[in-house]
Design a protein around this nucleic acid. Sequence first.
DNA 1: CGCCTTGATGTGAACGTTCACAATCCTGGC
DNA 2: GCCAGGATTGTGAACGTTCACATCAAGGCG
Lengths: 369, 369
Amino acid sequence: MEAAGPTSSPRLPADDATGRRPRAASILDVAAAAGVSYQTVSRVINDHPSVRPTTRELVLAAIEELGFRPNRAARVLRGAPARLVTVLTSNTSLYGYQAALQGIEEAARAAGFAVGVRVVDSALQQQVTAAVKRAIEPGGSLIVIAHDQTGAMALEAVPPGIPMAAMIETPAVDPGPERPWVWLDDKKAAAEATRYLLSLGHRTVHYLAIPSSTQTSQRQAGWRQALEEAGAPVPAPVQCGWTPRSGYQTGQGLAADPEVTAVLCGNDDLALGVMRALHAAGLSIPGDVSVVGFDDTPVSEFLTPPLTTVRLDFAGLGRSCFALLLALIEQKEARPPHTRRPEPELVIRESSGPPSLPRGSGMTRAAAT
Amino acid sequence: MEAAGPTSSPRLPADDATGRRPRAASILDVAAAAGVSYQTVSRVINDHPSVRPTTRELVLAAIEELGFRPNRAARVLRGAPARLVTVLTSNTSLYGYQAALQGIEEAARAAGFAVGVRVVDSALQQQVTAAVKRAIEPGGSLIVIAHDQTGAMALEAVPPGIPMAAMIETPAVDPGPERPWVWLDDKKAAAEATRYLLSLGHRTVHYLAIPSSTQTSQRQAGWRQALEEAGAPVPAPVQCGWTPRSGYQTGQGLAADPEVTAVLCGNDDLALGVMRALHAAGLSIPGDVSVVGFDDTPVSEFLTPPLTTVRLDFAGLGRSCFALLLALIEQKEARPPHTRRPEPELVIRESSGPPSLPRGSGMTRAAAT
DNA sequence: CGCCTTGATGTGAACGTTCACAATCCTGGC
DNA sequence: GCCAGGATTGTGAACGTTCACATCAAGGCG
């Protein structure tokens, strides 16, 4: 690390004798070196068919020697697509967002696209609109992560005509293939998780909601539907934030309510906070209360107890989303590829189990009816 | 979400009647609308002093009306700095990297810079060098996150002359202010955490190392130094990966070794895995083994038990790093601002406590001298 | 009153690339 | 040996911006 090595000069913009950064080699420099016209060089770097093989070799050698790389700005100025995707998101640290970004980056890199990130953190439509406008570059494209209110507003604010795809919350009705939108079907998954908890013998399941761009998310709708189909009582869903702290605060309330024996949390961070609060209140998991999360973050498997959760492949969704965008840009068939949607999957671990009624009776404390 | 709203057309690149995207307004359009020359418009958007106030108003009105925004590509082509920073990193999901990226993004956004992300995932110098070359845009700048081998290779591969700053591992000796490098001094923090554990009465502290770009990281050196100064035995450090799984696997070995009563982990994810393994082996934390991590990730406070850890402000470091880069680019005084380094801080929670010798004697099993 | 300075504005050129079109070179058929 | 016609190569222009320089009006000053 501390070896001075070959790069011993301080990294300052001005570098050579003239005090100017040495201009990068251009197509003209290559042309001169190869003894051809600049247009021939252009043809070579664009794989135009009618270049004599010997000429091509000549040019390629010159390119190699001069370390030539085409100037992206010039291409874009000329009207070429910039092979750039800017990700619009309200957050970069929450698991779902971060994993989505990772998936997009992977796919974009594989396709030779540059990736930009622009965080939009306002809740005011006007400011969001302005931020979206700033994010639009000539020749560029957009992916909007619209898992929340701000994201949905950003999606709304994207003007027509610019290549775009979006990751959205599960919609109530399929918007149809002409909308460049992808999502994970978490309604089904929420229902499955709820049915699973009911099947363990719980009388009902309480739901902790993460913020949503809609009044009631499909995640919540799936939960409700499963309860109703089973004839179980439907408790009021509890509105929470995204963070473990939010789950912790909510969990303190749940701990005091002996009716609560099973909790479905809108994400794993909430579940983590809930488990902490329950544990601190002297309740055992899953002995007294079962806790199920959403996401399957990398840590969930190693919590105490390991968390039962619905795995959501946000990285895969990000890759799909980019694939959709790419198809749109390249317009192969004018029909979006309708990429496979990664299926959510319930991962059963140790934070869920049969109830021991009345709660608290089990191994922890004496019953109190 | 599903409201068709004002944007009812499918988002396809071709949009208006001609099938071409409508060209964005240029400086010439604005000039025509305002009845001045294009150069005057250029002067207005660049805050050139000698424009008559009335003229300026005229131009600004035209800009507003046409929704004009200067074409970045054209400016860059002309030689202007692109106000673009590309973050080179080997990872986007690990906490330290992700928090650093977040900090950089915040600072960059505040300064009106666009942010690019480029993941370099090879361990081969040649491939890393090629990736770095590809990441360099005329007029652009670079931030290298060099917390690991790949990052250090990338840093090495950045040619002189392009504006760059880097986040590095704590160096053994201060490289001096002319290196545009920032870091968190985790040597001191590691020593502090180690002394803290010794002060609780532990005979020694075991260290689980995350991968490093150097043979022995300063984090590890701080641990060793604290042990030596206290005259405590120095166990062989255990090389681990980054993930909870890696910590879990290592933790299984530690659980079997009755000598181990205090473990210092290179990051919180390792600590999490270790705690899981110890717990699974029937050991109590901190009763049998104390566990201390590094990072203070958002979940650490809510683990069972809450994790004692060294808080590292990667987001703050990212902001500092960008500030350094910006100073370099703007060359105010040719002296880097020597931004304040966020200080690591030991956060004592419940995963650490006095030992109960011999291990397992305390409340868990019978003593055996 | 005319010269010089200063402020305000306009014109030409250049950044690096690709498109449209023109020019040149072959190759083969007759 | 000549010419059609494809293959190959070259020239001019344009993308949107800013720098360098020219122009023009107005004002200060001797």
